[in-house]
Amino acid sequence: MYNVMKAQFYQIKNDIVTYIMAFGVVLLLGFSIYLFGTDYAFSEITGSLVFSHLSDILVFYYFFAIAAVIRICGVDQADKTVNYEIMFGTKRRSIYFGRFFTALFFSIILFLAMIVLPLVFFSCKNGWGVIMPEKDGIIRTAFQIFPIIRMTCFYSALTFIIKQDMAGYIIGFVFTMTEMIINLILSEAYPDFGVFDHVIPLFSSIQLINLGNMSLSYIDGKDVMTAVDTVSQSLLTGVSCGSLITAAVFLFGGYILFSKSDVN
């Protein structure tokens, strides 16, 4: 499995798509900061302010991360070079989990670059701010790992089942758009839509960064919106357990199907 990962890293390093994706991420972050700059002075952008606007970036994060997972797991299946890994004696387990862990690594790297880096940068530059407690922000950010694991498991399994990348991109795009629309409808109709939000990665991620009730506070001579509630224990438990259980089902289900199926 380690050799599969090493080979994958080498391939990613030499893949033009990696650099196009990195350029896209930089462009998106630059554009987001530019938009922030139209509403706030640069010195006013604190870590907590960035956090309160994370949902926009988070949606784009999922688009990028899903594309990365599908490319890592699917491109070698599309051009059939993965067939040669099997024929050269690499176990299917190593092929599957080697790619999964590589995909997970890049999903996390992308998360650090798109979500954590802006938070850390503006916190260091202008402080955390007053919109929400710092500890609450750290917990909410750290728990994003669970939906990310689940998303990686789902799209890894999907790509190994459909055995190509192009259909995976289309399915990933359609799924994500559908999730966003359902999320919008349900969050308007039912502010707390229960167990459903723990099964779909984007729902969980948005629930985690949704600050809930906000109130207007007067701090340091300014009116600012601040979060009333901290993240609930039940949300954290639901997101982590729901994510891990469904992730395991996707991951091992995908592996069983891949290991027992013909590769043509």
Binding site: N3, V4, K6, A7, Y10, Q11, Y84, E85, F88
Partner: peptide
């Protein structure tokens, strides 16, 4: 590059 990837993988 193709052979290097294969070398790493094997």
């Amino acid at each position: 590059q193709n052979l290097e990837k294969l070398r790493l993988q094997k």
